[in-house]
Amino acid sequence: MKAGLLRFARNRMAVFGAAVLLALLAIVVLCPLLYPGDPFRLAGPPLQPPGQHFLLGTDTLGRDVAAGIAYGARTSLLVGVGATLAAILFGSIVGGLAGYYRGMMDVALMRVTEFFQTIPAFILAILIVAILSPSVPTEVLAIAAVSWPGIARLVRGEFVALGGREFVLACSGLGASDTRIIVRHLLPNCTSSIIAVGSLLIGTAILIESGLAFLGLGDPNVMSWGLIISAGRAVLRSAWWICAFPGIAILLTVLGINLVGDGLNEALNPRLRDR
């Protein structure tokens, strides 16, 4: 792990990505100080262009775009990380069961996994949020529901590869229960792969979240980047900045996450390096 971190630090692109993410985290932590009060609050006259009183201008209702972006960062990270953790949890359970028990269980679970990989993920996410009504938890649930198959296949592959190894046989010879072998011995051996793949999932999750919010499926009471863009769409002709800046925020965030994820992949998963 330590050698991996060193390898990561030597990767200039990955360090750049990490710097972007740190800046984003700083904004999230400091945003109550930078922009006290509700981001939905009216801050000034509507449709102010950027650079005068307001760094990034104001929207149709006179809300500060910069404040919206700062608060939106929190939503994006929350949904992105939350959905990824949920996907990792569920994917690990499915993949772990399939890879450990093999046989019919494996066949059945992998069929289901492939099924979820085939169907149009984004439309399923739309359906889930629309049916359960838009809110942060339903967004997390919907994104997790379409993100877990990759993790399940990864964990299954690792479990199958580890299954016949001596330390696993030794454990079961000593009478360790299945749960103990899975949780204490097999899962810790997959952590680095899960971290590497999971980090990339956060980026995808944030992209899906922004798409959902853009279609009006974000939590209406929580500021988010997709929400600002969808509200600014109507005045695109006269006020380009309302749509432009939140999009740049999405782009930079996802780029940072992908660079860090690629860096982690190379550092922690030498086998995956060429993929």
């Binding site: 980026g203 992209l207 769409r233 782009l251 780029l255």
Partner: peptide, 14 residues
């Protein structure tokens, strides 16, 4: 790398 991180709807608007 940049294309990977760009939301399609935002690209369309721009």
């Amino acid at each position: 790398l940049i294309a990977y991180a760009t939301p399609a709807f935002w690209l369309g608007l721009m």
